[in-house]
C-alpha cells in the first residue's frame, strides 16, 4: 500500500528551471529561468556541466525567494550520476543539512515530497529540493558514448539536460503543496532498457490510483495530471490501464512530450531524466499556476530503478512513481 500524506501549511516559496540548448529549442523556452547554449555549460565535462546547471537553478530559486542560505533548514536533491556525484558535490557548498535521494527520473517529485513532508511536520521551516540530469552524463552512465553509431530504437527517450530547484516553506504563497504519495517499487518482469516508459506506466498507474483513493478524489478534481517521462508509448499504456477499469483518463499529459517539439525525429519518444519533470514543473507548470491558468495538478514523477550492472546481470528493471499534489490558492 502506498503512503499518502496530507500536508498542512506547506507552500512553494520559489522555483527555478535551467535548461540546455535542445530544451531551449523546444516549446517551453519562455518558461525557463536560464538556458545554457551547450550541455557543457562552459565547463570541462558533462558532469561539470550538470553541476553548473543545477547550481544555477538552486541559486536562482534562492534569489527569487528572497531568502538566504541561513534560512534553509534542509535540502533534498538527486540526479542520475553514480553515487549522486553531481548533487553531493553541490551539497558540499551548502551550510545546511543535505539528504541525497535517488529515484531515477522521479527524483524531482521524490525530493519535493520529502521537502514538503519535513515542512508540514514542522521539522523544517524552509526546505530546498532540487534535481538535474544531463544528456551527456546520462548516456555515458547508462548507455553509450554520444558519438557511438548505434541505431536507437523508436521507444528510446532522450535525457533532458536541465535542472530544477524549489524552495518549500510555511510562509503562505499562491501555490500550496497539498499532499503527496510515496510510491511502491514494482516488478513487471521488464528487461528492455530501450523502452522505460512501458514499465513505468505501471508504477504511475499504481501511484495515481493510490493517491486518488486515499484523497477520495477522481480525475475531474484536477485540471491536469502530469507524469514525468512515460513517453508516447507509456502514456498510451497508462490511459488504457485506466480504461480497463472503466475510467477515462482525459486530463493526462506527459512532461516528456511537452519539453521537446512533438514529432521531432531525433527526439524519438520524447524527453526523460530527472530534469524532465523538474524543468517542466518548476518552469512551465508553476508559471501557469501563478497566473491562475491551472488550479489543481497532480505531478507524478516516474523512475526506472536499474543500474548498468543489474541490467548486465540480466535482472529486471524495478519501477517507481512518486506523486505531489499542488493547488493554486488566493486570488
Amino acid at each position: 500500500m502506498s503512503l499518502t500524506l496530507k500536508f498542512k501549511d506547506v507552500y512553494i516559496q520559489s522555483s527555478a528551471a535551467v535548461a540546455g540548448p535542445e530544451e531551449a529549442n523546444g516549446p517551453l523556452k519562455p518558461y525557463f529561468d536560464y538556458c545554457f547554449d551547450s550541455i557543457y555549460a562552459n565547463q570541462k565535462s558533462y558532469e561539470e556541466g550538470e553541476k553548473e546547471m543545477s547550481k544555477t537553478a538552486i541559486l536562482t530559486a534562492l534569489k527569487k525567494s528572497g531568502l538566504s542560505s541561513k534560512d534553509i533548514d534542509v535540502a533534498f536533491g538527486g540526479d542520475l550520476t553514480d553515487q549522486l556525484a553531481v548533487s553531493n558535490f553541490l551539497a558540499k557548498e551548502m551550510p545546511y543539512s543535505f539528504i541525497g535521494v535517488y529515484g531515477a527520473c522521479s527524483t524531482a517529485m521524490l525530493s519535493l515530497a520529502l521537502a514538503a513532508t519535513f515542512v508540514s511536520s514542522k521539522c523544517a521551516k524552509n526546505a530546498l529540493c532540487f534535481s538535474s540530469s544531463n544528456y551527456g552524463s546520462a548516456e555515458r552512465q547508462f548507455r553509450y558514448p554520444t558519438e557511438y553509431g548505434i541505431e536507437k530504437k523508436d521507444a528510446t527517450t532522450i535525457t533532458v539536460s536541465g535542472a530544477g530547484a524549489a524552495l518549500v516553506g510555511t510562509r503562505a504563497t499562491k501555490i500550496k503543496v497539498v499532499a503527496c504519495t510515496f510510491g511502491q517499487v514494482h516488478d513487471v518482469q521488464w528487461t528492455d532498457v530501450n523502452d522505460m516508459g512501458s514499465p513505468m506506466a505501471y508504477a504511475a498507474f499504481d501511484t495515481i490510483a493510490s493517491h486518488l483513493k486515499h484523497s477520495k478524489k477522481s480525475f475531474k478534481d484536477y485540471d491536469l495530471i502530469m507524469t514525468g517521462d512515460l513517453s508516447e508509448v507509456g502514456s498510451k499504456i497508462l490511459k488504457e490501464m485506466f480504461e480497463k477499469e472503466g475510467k477515462v483518463f482525459y486530463n493526462h499529459i506527459d512532461s516528456g512530450s511537452l519539453v521537446y517539439e512533438q514529432g521531432e525525429k531525433d527526439k524519438f519518444s520524447g524527453g526523460s531524466g530527472c530534469g524532465c519533470i523538474a524543468i517542466t514543473t518548476y518552469g512551465y507548470i508553476l508559471n501557469k499556476m501563478s497566473r491562475n491558468e491551472i488550479k489543481r495538478i497532480l505531478l507524478v514523477g516516474t523512475g526506472a530503478l536499474h543500474s548498468k550492472t543489474s541490467v548486465g546481470q540480466k535482472n529486471v528493471i524495478p519501477v517507481v512513481a512518486h506523486a505531489v499534489e499542488l493547488e493554486r490558492v488566493g486570488d
Binding site: 553509450y144 558514448p145 554520444t146 557511438y148 553509431g149 548505434i150 541505431e151 531525433d266
Partner: peptide
Amino acid sequence: WYNNMAQIVGAGLFIPTTGFANSMTSA
C-alpha cells in the same frame, strides 16, 4: 556525423570495419 548516419543505416555501418573504428573512436 557518424552517429546520424548510423541512425539511418544501422547494420550497414556497424558490420563493416567502420563500426569497429567508430566504437573505439567514440569511446
